[in-house]
Amino acid sequence: MNIFRLAGDMTHLLSILVLLLKIYATKSCSGVSRKTQELYAIVFLARYLDLFTDFISVYNTFMKIVFIASSLAIVWCIRVHPMVKRSYDKDLDTFRHYLLVAASFLLALFLHEKFTFLEIFWAFSIYLEAVAILPQLVLLQRSGNVDNLTGQYVFFLGAYRGLYILNWIYRYLTEPRFTRWIACVSGVVQTALYADFFYYYFISWKNNSKLKLPA
């Protein structure tokens, strides 16, 4: 474990806490893409299939459970909780996210570390996570002004994988046999997808103005 990875995991956890706060405090999921939340639930379920069979550390197991439980709880809130469900705007959240699932799974069938069930689902979860934010970014562009908590949620979610890139560079330099190309390349693509969001987020922070993504 190095400082970059710990900072990355804490930033990821923070993004989830900010989203939970937004939904709990405002009893609304306006500006939040249900499809992105569903994709993230699939990402965690597919990635942590070894949760009970492969013990790495208490921290690792604890965080996996937190990520799975929180992503399912958020999807449940948006789909079932009467107050929150009413605020979900399905006319804005129209990204065909099942195509992302299909494409990621197809890619995982061809590009993986080992042709085993766990490795293919792991690669699938890595590719799917790289594109999981797309429905959310499209929704932000459509919904004009973005409330602060939703903006912070997306910012921290994008920042965490950027910190993981620093972690991979650090591990590549310090650990002789460290190679994790699938996660690295996918992580760079994932972070690059946030580039324009980060730009407009920085502008809104600098001008102390409302975050607005151009349509």
Binding site: D9, I56, N60, E113, W122, R177, F178, T179, R180, A183
Partner: peptide, 10 residues
């Protein structure tokens, strides 16, 4: 120690 592809990251 597990082989190189051990998934020790989240």
């Amino acid at each position: 120690v597990k082989d190189g592809t051990s998934k020790d990251e989240l």
